Amino acid sequence: MKTHVFFKQIRLLLLILIPFAGLAQPPRGPFVISPKVNTDKSVTFSYLAPNAKTVLLGGSQFGQADVPMTKNAEGVWSVTVGPIKPDIYPYSFKVDGITVMDPANVAFFPNERFKASLVEVPSDAPAIYALKNVPHGSVTYEYYPSVEGSTGTVVVYTPSGYTKETAKKYPVYYLISGTTDTEETFWKVGKVNLMLDNMIAAGTAKPMIVVMPYGNPLAKIAEQTGKDKPSDVMNRDGEDALRRMKLFETDLVAHVIPYIEKNYRTLNNRDNRAIGGFSRGGGQTLRTAFNNVDKFAYVCSYASYIAPAEMDKSFTNITANPAKTNKDFKLLWSGIGTDDFLYKGTVEFEDYLKAKNINFKSYVTDGGHTWMNVKKYLNETLPVLFK
């Protein structure tokens, strides 16, 4: 009897509140679909802004910078561009001079600063990072005790067999994103998880764990102590940049690796550890590997380098005995795009290694300092790790 009265009261309350809930809802504009990838590989971008005076499309990485958009009677601005070469690209809108993300799109570029939206233009044949009908690994977020009492964040990929073969241990690839990128970027933009799923299923890459740390522990410390986030480093080879790289090295070697090896089934020796990174992450890779030869046998530098002057000053342990270095590193890999602003420095670094008789694998592609090229670097290196 009491239950019956209770539900009558609930129904009465709902009848009273529903009209007011409807009144509280803000007015809704037209439903916007954006981006829309068309069959001819052109893409239609749309943005609802009935009161805006101008809306521009920003997609410089697919050749469309500040493209004017046209407003319809409902206040939706649109433009169709392309066809666009299949890949994954960042884009944004500039609304009356203010750069914004696409609110109709849930895919975005993880970054410390502005987070652009992402559009994927699929190829006719499945791309190397396509979602295929193969066994899939898992992606996990982890928190660990980091430098200066802070808490660090890391993203971990484990291959499909990890949860089933509970006695099996795996090699580990420590993979570091670039300047202002986050620990999510190699996953959400680089698609390393899907690439490895496909390669492992095809037998072209060994099953491995991939650990993706956040490359800016100084920012985490500032965030957790109520301080302002440190500004971006302007001089990549300057004293401040090197100090920050050393802090990351300390975090990786003293905190990240011990945490991973305690909490995951890993093969804990240098022959089963690889380190790689893009841009700033590539610089962190080279310096960490050269300072810790006892910990890494595979080293992959994606669009990065160390200047010859720094090599002569800080890394004579690498150049003094090239025969030992060539034996220590089973792979020293360097990749760069011909239009990359770091191309010249990377070539000088490779020429330096060659003059010092240090063995390395060089890969040169077209394109610039982009995550489109990063996926090419991954495609070249993932199959040769731990072989």
Score class of each variant (00 low, 15 high):
Tyr129Arg: 04
Pro26Phe: 11
Ala49Ser: 12
Phe62Ser: 00
Asp40Ser: 02
Val121Thr: 01
Gly63Pro: 08
Phe114Tyr: 08
Pro86Leu: 04
Gly29Tyr: 08
Val121Trp: 01
Phe109Val: 07
Ala49Phe: 08
Ile88Arg: 14
Ile128Phe: 15
Ala52Ile: 09
Val67Trp: 03
Val37Ile: 06
Phe93Asn: 03
Pro103Ser: 00
Gly22Ile: 12
Asp96His: 02
Leu48Phe: 14
Phe114Trp: 03
Phe45Arg: 01
Ala52Cys: 05
Asp66Ile: 08
Gln61Cys: 06
Pro30Thr: 06
Tyr89Gly: 06
Ile98Lys: 14
Ile33Ala: 15
Arg11Trp: 13
Gly22Pro: 00
Gln25Ile: 14
Val55Cys: 03
Gln64Pro: 00
Glu74Phe: 13
Ser123Met: 00
Leu118Gln: 04
Ala24Met: 13
Ser42Glu: 03
Gly58Leu: 15
Phe108Asn: 11
Arg28Val: 13
Tyr91Ile: 05
Ile33Asn: 15
Lys94Met: 11
Leu14Ser: 12
Leu57Asp: 01
Lys71Met: 09
Gly22Glu: 07
Lys41Ile: 07
Arg11Cys: 15
Ala116Glu: 09
Thr99Asn: 06
Leu15Gly: 07
Lys53Thr: 15
Ser117Ile: 13
Pro50Arg: 00
Val55Asp: 00
Lys94Thr: 10
Leu15Trp: 12
Pro83Arg: 03
Glu120Ser: 13
Val32His: 01
Val37Lys: 00
Lys53Glu: 13
Ala52Asp: 02
Phe45Ile: 05
Gln25Asp: 05
Ala104Asp: 06
Lys36Thr: 14
Thr80Asn: 01
Gly58Ile: 13
Ala24Tyr: 14
Ile88Gly: 08
Gly22Arg: 09
Glu120Ile: 12
Ser92Thr: 07
Asp102Met: 09
Thr44Pro: 00
Gln25Phe: 14
Pro50Tyr: 01
Ala49Gly: 11
Gly75Leu: 10
Tyr129Cys: 04
Pro27Leu: 15
Tyr47Lys: 02
Ser123Gly: 10
Val119Ser: 00
Val79Pro: 05
Leu56Ser: 04
Asp87Cys: 11
Ser123Arg: 02
Val121Glu: 00
Gly82Ala: 08
Pro126Asn: 10
Val37Gln: 01
Pro30Leu: 09
Val32Tyr: 03
Thr99Ser: 09
Arg11Pro: 03
Asn38Pro: 09
Pro30Ala: 11
Val119Lys: 01
Phe93Trp: 07
Leu57Cys: 03
Asn38Glu: 13
Glu74Thr: 10
Val32Cys: 02
Val106Trp: 14
Tyr47Pro: 00
Asn105Val: 09
Ile33Tyr: 15
Val43Lys: 05
Val106His: 14
Ala21Ser: 13
Tyr91His: 02
Phe109Gln: 07
Val43His: 06
Asn38Asp: 12
Thr54Cys: 05
Ala107Val: 14
Leu14Met: 13
Tyr129Ser: 08
Phe108Glu: 09
Ala127Trp: 10
Glu112Ser: 06
Leu118Thr: 04
Ser34Arg: 02
Ala125Thr: 12
